[in-house]
Amino acid sequence: MSDSVLIRLFVNGEEHALAAPPQRTLLEALRYDLQLTGSKQGCDKGDCGACTVLVRERSATGRGEPILACITLAQDAQDLAIITIEGLATPAGLDPIQQAFADCGALQCGFCQPGMMLSARALLDRCERPSLPQIQDALSGNLCRCTGYTKIYEAIQVAAGLREPSSRAPVSSEKALPSDQVAYAVKELLP
């Protein structure tokens, strides 16, 4: 067991103090010490983006830029203002990005999405009307295994006011004629 150190973190506008081993990562501190479990752990080491949070210098303004909490040391994040997925919504309701993700079916298993939504939020904060290539580029550090990214693009475009949610209607098939039947005896070559 290591000796703990006192770590002060400024998260979602609130100051927290916690005692943890010096090697505590920011992700562990958020998830296990502060119970902010919306930041996810997917790959252990900075490959998948599920732990993305927004950070800025405390003196700076705005929401900040996306970084990876799983390879950031909590102690080294003490001078930063951190925004996690829990800090995106306001008492008035979900952030437009969150609302659009929910409305557009951009959330399937939902596990990569906190990181994805924070990357998307940072994109819209610096670019109100992004092009598709800009969206694709901004999300390229967040791996999603469910959606093929398609509905995520849609959600960001909806949040940016660039389009309405998809409403393409299904197409009915006509009754297809049965083909001529051929019946053979089955040979079981092996039980």
């Binding site: 479990t37 930041s39 997925i85 995106l88 993700f101 929910a102 079916g105 959330l107």
Partner: peptide
């Protein structure tokens, strides 16, 4: 919209 969508959206 998915019924668990909001819970997945707000963390």
């Amino acid at each position: 919209p998915k019924v668990d969508g909001a819970g997945k959206a707000d963390g």
